[in-house]
């Protein structure tokens, strides 16, 4: 069944016809070519497909595409400005916070939400906030470091 939807994805408005059984993950990847959104477990267990839906992190594999009607979606592509990496992404790269990179875009989106939500946070807060983003490579150490460094960028007034 095709369903018409209106949505904003990465600051751009779309009018789309979607097959109701298509997940948001597949819509973003296959129809809109937003390949930062990675297919992980497709059952909400790994967080590799995390996007912000109306400003909050969700697993795009668990959202049916008609459900984003009237909503706003943000992916890593939408964090970039004129092809430049967002300071948060820069902090990930500088702090070796990625190895294979498969979990990274999802990790970035959750981190973006966390930094924007909290004025201040502890390491425990970051750990609790990232519990839904699995990483098999890094042991999370450098990811936590990167988020702290990114927060410094934000506080120092870098574009955000």
């Amino acid at each position: 069944m095709q369903v018409p939807i209106n949505t904003r994805i990465n600051q751009r408005s779309y009018e789309l016809e979607v097959d109701a059984r298509t997940t948001l993950l597949d819509l973003l990847r296959e129809k809109l070519d937003l390949k930062s959104v990675h297919r992980g477990c497709e059952e909400g267990e790994c967080g590799a497909c995390t996007v912000l839906l109306n400003g909050k992190p969700v697993c795009s594999c668990l959202v049916l595409s008609p459900q984003i009607n009237g909503a706003e979606v943000l992916t890593v592509e939408g964090l970039m400005k004129d092809g430049n990496m967002h300071p948060l992404m820069k902090a990930f790269v500088e702090n070796y916070a990625m190895q294979c990179g498969y979990c990274t875009p999802g990790m970035v989106m959750t981190s973006y939400y966390l930094i924007n939500t909290w004025d201040d946070f502890t390491e425990e807060d970051i750990r609790k906030g990232l519990e839904g983003n699995l990483c098999r490579c890094t042991g999370y150490t450098n990811i936590i470091r990167a988020i702290r460094e990114a927060k410094k960028y934000k506080d120092a007034g870098y574009w955000w």
Partner: peptide, 8 residues
């Protein structure tokens, strides 16, 4: 679940 799950 996780935050992503709780958000949805």
């Amino acid at each position: 679940g996780s935050m992503q799950i709780r958000n949805w």
